[in-house]
């Protein structure tokens, strides 16, 4: 697991108050929303805000592209590697 993947998982746990979940339990290629980690729409907004704060990435709230970026930890990591400033 790359340090970026781990960093993203920890960011999600901290931002979303997922106290009962350890970073290792979040699987890189599993869905984050509805299935897999079972996050909801408010969590999506919260992650969007965290990405903006930490990596300077701004996303449109309701575009198909954003949906794809939010699919899994892997896709979020790709997004940050291509656009993020750290």
């Amino acid at each position: 697991m790359s340090s970026l993947h781990l960093e993203l998982k920890q960011m999600i746990i901290d931002t979303l108050d997922l106290e009962d979940i350890a970073a290792e339990e979040i699987i890189n290629d599993e869905p984050l929303f509805v299935e897999g980690l079972c996050l909801d729409s408010i969590d999506a907004l919260e992650i969007g805000l965290a990405l903006q704060k930490r990596y300077g990435i701004k996303l449109k709230a309701d575009s198909e592209e954003t949906r794809q970026h939010f699919a899994s930890i892997n896709s979020l990591a790709l997004l940050i590697e291509s656009q993020g400033s750290r």
Binding site: I42, L45, E46
Partner: peptide, 9 residues
């Protein structure tokens, strides 16, 4: 600071 959507809701 930007507002937390969860906090707001």
């Amino acid at each position: 600071e930007p507002m937390s959507p969860t906090g707001f809701s």
